[in-house]
Structures are given as structure tokens and as C-alpha cells.
Design a protein around this nucleic acid. Structure first.
Lengths: 194, 194
DNA sequence: AACAAAGGTCAAGAATTTTTGAAAATAATT
DNA sequence: AATTATTTTCAAAAATTCTTGACCTTTGTT
């Protein structure tokens, strides 16, 4: 569950965040690996922070792990390195990097004489926010706009006594969608103002 | 998957939204019910819109169904009515309403002489946004703040050459968190104006 | 006080999403 | 063009999340 939708109504004041990060793969079965790949407690905690964040956004843990690892790394890393550091599969690594690439949360570079791609974390909040909004939110709004138009037509064809009520409701959703749309560039300006 | 994290990189320009709403329970097995409970195509489409939205937010379908139904209803409804209209279980209905209640997306009222609670959709964008941010986002930021402080202490205790690099990174996360925190009231003002 | 209707709880099952890893595709080198 | 390193794909397994419904509590009625 990405967002907390099961909050108890009467359970005193228990901490309101529900995501558990008890079982972090790499902290469990990592000791027997090449020590040069070992992550410090500090790094593990930072990675957990990003896992928490991605889970809150409804995204898989592996994405938070990958971004977190890159965020902690002064030098850019290759796919095999990421896999070994985090002890995750090639598939997860590849898909996670694709997602992060799509939202411009990582930078990809090459080094002369080395075939692999090198990945590093993008840390500009403006770029991160912009990528996330453009790739993840704006398509939803665009799609929503289309859907609402279709709904509007269906409602216009109604003859029941509910027609006017529903017309009004459709107008409400339309307004919401427009506001959301207008908000995107504003958000980038406000939050991303360096 | 709440947000699209599997977008193909090279699949021409296929529509970027991935959520399917092919199987909407109540449109499938609803015809054999009491006709007074029957939903029109328009209503079903509006409910699908909200299902789509809740899925995009990483929330269960039932929550979108319940909110959508209430949104389409000129009069407030009881739990048994909601269950029958949507053909969902008591558990889902109860939990869904609790979630919606927590974020102030619904209003609960009583009618004299009737035991049941009556539920209706809150349609003020300001209230909806405020409730969602306060109940779902702000606790995450608060928790994040705590986590970052803890991480900061761990990093301060470091002696490795990475210490300064990680200190800098922690500072970056701190800034992000603060900006997010400052943004909440601003968002409500901007979007919820009127 | 017994009954009935409404609402809540939560373990188990169903449905969905994520991860894995073998196989295919791509790209660089000899 | 054959070889090898790197990356992508995708079906199946694993993990997680959602829904159900039997049981329990609460509230109001007779």
C-alpha cells in the first residue's frame, strides 16, 4: 500500500507512517561478498530512506534502492556493480534504471575504452521534479482530460432527471483537471527554484 | 503499479497510461439486481474515472468506486446501499469509507429516526487537497525529517573519506524535505483558491 | 432483556505487482 | 563473421496488497 489507507481510527497516537523497512536485502545477506562492495551503515540508511520514499510513491523498492545507491556514490556505477552492491537481479536493475531514466532521475555516461554504461544520480530537485511530473503526472492528466470529454458526451445524451446534476459534477471534474494541469509548471518554478 | 515504471523506450508513441479498467465489477454482474440500484452508463464511466485516479495514486480500486458512487449521487447513501450498488463486500466498504473519512473526502450525516450513517462526497477541491496532503503527505515528510536527522548523526560519526561527500548528500535531502514541507500550504492556496 | 440491524475486524483466499534468471538481442572487439 | 561483454526481455515464481465474509461489537427497538 503506497499511501496509508488503513489508519486505525481509535488507536491512540501511534506513528502514522506504515511502511516497514525491516527487511532490506543487502543488509541481510551481504557480509559474505567482496568487501569492496560493502555498504556502510550510513549508506544503508540513506538507501532505506529512498526505499521508503519510492514505496510512498507506489513504486517498487528496487527503484529506491538503485537511486539511493547512486545517490550515495561519488562515482558513477555500472549495471553489474549495482547488482552486486544491492544484491538484486539483472532484470530488476535494468527495469529500475529504465524507469529512473524515463523520469530523468539518473544520468548515463560512457568512459573511453570501457564498454559499459555508467549511471549516476541526478540531484537537481528541479530536474527530478520536472521529470517526475512530466513523465508520471502529466500523462495522467492528459488522459483524464480525454476521459472527461467522453463522459461529458454520455451525460449530454441523458434524459433522466439526474442529467443536470451529473452535468454539474462533470464540470467539477473538468475544473479539477484544468487546475492540475496549470499547476505543473508552477510547481517546478516554486520547488525547483534553485 | 501505481505509476508507470515499465514504459517501453522504443515502442513508438503508444498511449502512455497503463491502467486498464476493463473489468469493472458492477458493470459485469449487476443486471440481475434490484433495478432501483442500477447505475447508468454515465455513472459507471464517472466511477471508472475515479477508479483510474485512485489507482494512479496507488490506492485500491474499491476506494475509487466508493468515492465515485457518492460523487454521482445527489443524495447521501448508507453502507448497505453502497455495497449493493457496487457489489463489493462489507469489509471493503467499511475500510474504504474509513480511508475516505480520514482524508476528509466524504461527509457523514445522520437522519432522525434512521439508525444508519449517511455518506456523501466532499467536492470542494480545497478540502480534498487539504485532507489528502495533511493526512497522506505531511506525515511522510515529518517522518522523513526524523529519518534524515538520524542519518545525519550516523554520517557525522563517520571517519572514511566519504564522510564529506555523504554530509553534502544529507544536506541535499534535508533541503528537499524542507521545500516539500513549505509547499503544502502553498499548494492548498493555489489549487484550492475559491 | 432479547432481538435485529448496522458497522467493525481480521484471517484466509484472490488478485495484482515485483523480482528473478534464462534466453534473446545488441554492440564492441578481434 | 565469430566471439565476448553488456543489456533487454519476458514467463514463471515470489512477494505483496486487496477483498471477502464469518464473527464480533455497538446501537436502537420492542
Amino acid at each position: 500500500m503506497a499511501l496509508q489507507y488503513m489508519k486505525k481510527t481509535n488507536t491512540s497516537d501511534r506513528s502514522s507512517i506504515e511502511i516497514e523497512d525491516s527487511d532490506v536485502r543487502f543488509s541481510d545477506n551481504f557480509s559474505s561478498q567482496d568487501p569492496s562492495l560493502e555498504l556502510s551503515t550510513a549508506e544503508i540508511e540513506i538507501i532505506k530512506y529512498f526505499v521508503h520514499l519510492t514505496k510512498a510513491l507506489g513504486l517498487p523498492k528496487s527503484i529506491g534502492e538503485i537511486y539511493g545507491l547512486l545517490f550515495c556514490s561519488p562515482k558513477s556505477l555500472t549495471i553489474p556493480e549495482i547488482m552486486k552492491h544491492l544484491n538484486i537481479s539483472k532484470g530488476s536493475t535494468s527495469q529500475g534504471l529504465r524507469f529512473l531514466g524515463n523520469i530523468n532521475a539518473i544520468n548515463i555516461s560512457k568512459k573511453i575504452g570501457i564498454r559499459s554504461d555508467f549511471y549516476s544520480a541526478e540531484v537537481s530537485l528541479r530536474k527530478l521534479l520536472n521529470g517526475f511530473l512530466d513523465e508520471q503526472i502529466e500523462p495522467h492528466l492528459k488522459n483524464g482530460h480525454k476521459r472527461i470529454s467522453e463522459i461529458s458526451e454520455v451525460v449530454d445524451g441523458l434524459t433522466s432527471e439526474k442529467k443536470n446534476f451529473l452535468k454539474d459534477r462533470v464540470k467539477t471534474i473538468q475544473t479539477w483537471n484544468n487546475k492540475g494541469h496549470d499547476l505543473i509548471p508552477l510547481l517546478v518554478e516554486i520547488v525547483g527554484s534553485k
